[in-house]
Design a protein around this nucleic acid. Structure first.
Lengths: 348, 348
DNA sequence: TTGAAAGCGCTAACAT
DNA sequence: ATGTTAGCGCTTTCAA
């Protein structure tokens, strides 16, 4: 801190106008007419002084902190949170908002969540983003009621808060279509066994593609288990040991796909020569490091973060209506990420 | 926003004292004597009104925003950043500070970094944390000079900023000692080929353990390549194909270890039966999902984040001296995380 | 031991 | 088209 930085009155003085005019010019205050020539002079003065507004003074006066709270689960364990943060942050910067991130522990229940919200309220954030680490329904802490909120990767039970979620069905359609296009008709599906939207959505996508291509649905080609590596391995091992084994596997997520890779290897099945695999989630650390690279479906974390902030801003400005946004969650695309785990099936 | 929230004057009124007294009591202002009985009354009043200070007013008056900027690389790609954030955040909360995180693009050079720092300055942060995604030297943007700063996972070229880094040597010592303790004497080392502290530190740890146990150093057991999965695979494949192959492998990081797993599998070597492996970094997504679970060394990301904030606070309060902190980086332990990839070597 | 009052830098109602 | 001024809620100097 060499010199005390310039204030609005310094700018006013240098430009030879009043502080009011400076404020009007620099904020583009509506319903205010200032001569172009004066505007130019003010901006010039501000620039030469390196003027930047004192946020605290602004906040005090306008009663808006310019802070947006992001309540996020599991910051520390998956890169998913990182992408949401990045998307939200870039959007926030566009709107001159500052993101304050609080990690909230999913396990620790409503009580802790309330505390986390309180921490944000204490910091006087203007609004909050609530992000979960996988697509599901949440019930929000009651003290969030007073604050404009947008949900990321979740919907609320009451259906009263704007939300953005991934297109699970569409993602599964892309994945399975990719397999069908490669020539596969016997396609196994290793599904999650949790009762979450992704489980149902991805299954629906799978069914729809089969239907569309008039491939009969074979229930024995679908099995489910917890969406981890080991259960994925076990399921795949079992399904691939059969004489009428599928030529391709659509896996609920990349971790299950990782298990399937191991099963294939142990059974002497080459990927993608003898078995094609598609995953879901695009967890780079797994998908890009498996041999061969795993073709998978990306979740739009970045895009959800960005959409949420943009929507919050429009809500705050009254440019968007709360009601329609709250009634239907915004659904964002899950694009296919092609690597090297899919090929045409063997000629029989 | 139902009712306009209580201010200091409301508290004063309810307690039947002046705002001055309220301020003194609530801030524990030093050199101020208030009767215990009055204090109690004030606190009582504050509580019943649900009083919380207006941060903007405080900031305006005291010229301290209570904001700490965290400039972090690669938020979106690894969980490492997440752990640093978590550690920093928890420490920040202790001190009633708010963390503002900005993602900075490592690739985009000094110019972009300067902009990111400027964004923080514009937000009037009281101090900044600068975190890199792997241990290395950095040169800081010039506009950071005016702000109290602590480096996380890096040191600056000028050696003039307090910094905290992992104990690379110690981590490698733990890893290799673990192998030696299991009975291994032919221990291969798959190293990184970048000229970064980890490369040299982990190699030194490796050498030191051999020396300590009077195991002769065999240069043919050490090879290096870029620290990715594929090079790890290639190096391992080559080293394990030899007739005098090592019985254990110490890998520079978990990704190289993942490559080594594949090489072992292809060569029909069981882990840990025929080959023991230890990695480095403890990337859960890899280490916990490999078969068998990878024994590895954890980087103290959480701890570095927490230490950095604590140190910043002590610096800000004048409780710590800048000079000694700047001269020697703080070195934090890298603990061994034991899973299932290490066993005694085969009886020959 | 407590209180009165100035003022942080800005915005906006009002005046000119 | 531009200027004067009150006041946002708090901390802190000074006085009582």
């Amino acid at each position: 801190m060499a010199v005390k930085s310039a204030g609005i009155r310094d700018v006013a003085e240098l430009a030879g106008v009043s502080v009011t005019t400076v404020s009007h010019v620099l904020n583009n205050t509506p319903h205010t007419r200032v001569a172009e020539e004066t505007k130019a002079r003010v901006r010039e003065a501000a620039k030469t002084l390196g003027y930047g507004p004192n946020r605290a003074a602004q906040a005090l006066r306008t009663n808006r902190s310019g802070l947006v709270g992001l309540l996020s689960e599991e910051i520390a364990t998956t890169p998913h949170a990182g992408r949401i943060i990045l998307g939200a942050q870039n959007a926030a910067r566009e709107h001159d908002l500052t993101l304050v991130i609080i990690n909230t522990d999913r396990a620790s229940g409503a009580h802790a969540h309330k505390d986390d919200v309180q921490a944000l309220i204490d910091r006087q954030v203007d609004a909050v983003l609530y992000a979960t680490m996988y697509h599901r329904q949440v019930s929000l802490p009651p003290n969030l009621q007073d604050l404009p909120t947008v949900l990321i990767d979740s919907t609320d039970k009451a259906g009263t808060i704007p939300a953005v979620v991934p297109d699970e069905v569409g993602g599964a359609i892309s994945a399975v279509t990719h397999l069908v296009d490669a020539g596969h008709t016997r396609i196994g599906f290793l599904n999650n066994d949790d009762d979450v939207p992704a489980t149902h959505g991805r299954f629906e996508g799978y069914r729809r593609v089969l239907e569309e291509h008039e491939i009969p649905y074979d229930a024995s080609l679908v099995s489910s288990a917890p969406s981890e590596t080991l259960p994925g391995y076990e399921l795949a091992r079992e399904m691939l040991s059969r004489t009428d084994r599928p030529t391709a596997l659509f896996c609920y997520n990349d971790r299950m796909a990782m298990g399937a890779y191991r099963a294939a290897t142990e059974l002497g099945l080459g990927i993608p020569k003898d078995l094609s695999i598609v995953g879901f989630d695009n967890q780079e650390l797994i998908a890009a490091n498996l041999f061969p690279g795993l073709t998978t479906v990306a979740l739009p974390h970045y895009e959800m973060g960005a959409w949420a902030v943009d929507t919050l801003v429009r809500l705050l400005r009254g440019e968007a209506d709360h009601k329609p946004l709250a009634e239907e969650p915004k659904i964002l695309d899950c694009p296919l990420v092609v690597r090297d785990s899919v090929a045409a099936p063997h000629a029989n």
